[in-house]
């Protein structure tokens, strides 16, 4: 295992809960590993499974999708649609051979900076142990 391997994680965060929680982690000066790159959307319901696949394709070692807790969605039930989609996507990722530790769906409220940091650190540790995804562009037979 390459000890220098720093997993790169893409996080799709909803504007109202999870993005705010990560901001709060910042305001509270909590610490988590740097290779954690955020794409902000208004609602986790905007996260198309295609984006998750695209992130892995481009080189992500892990992907996080986070939204408001069920019942707390700023848009009433966008997160429920996310739950439906990601439940199916998880099964497909498994068949693609992507270990389940590399993809997580989490409900993180605007106040749960600590939960966020815990999830981020856990993902880093678990993915570090798995090693890089090593999916390079497969465009030819050469």
């Amino acid at each position: 295992m390459n000890q220098n391997f720093e997993p790169k994680i893409i996080a799709f965060l909803c504007n109202w809960c999870s993005y705010a929680a990560l901001d709060l982690a910042g305001t509270s000066r909590m610490k988590y590993p740097p290779n954690f790159l955020v794409v902000r959307v208004m609602c986790s319901g905007r996260v198309d499974p295609q984006f998750v696949l695209e992130a892995f394709r481009r080189g992500a070692d892990g992907v996080l999708v986070a939204g408001c807790h069920p019942g707390d969605c700023h848009y009433i039930e966008g997160n429920i649609k996310t739950l439906r989609r990601m439940t199916l996507l998880k099964r497909m990722l498994e068949e693609f051979g992507i270990e389940k530790e590399r993809f997580r769906l989490e409900w993180i409220s605007a106040a749960e900076a600590d939960k966020f940091v815990k999830v981020a650190n856990e993902m880093f540790e678990q993915i570090k142990a798995l090693g890089p995804l090593k999916l390079k562009e497969v465009n030819t037979h050469e």
Binding site: E54, L135, V138
Partner: peptide
């Protein structure tokens, strides 16, 4: 996007 199973696609 992934073209197939990761282990098959890896080289």
């Amino acid at each position: 996007r992934l073209r197939g199973k990761i282990t098959v696609m890896r080289r």
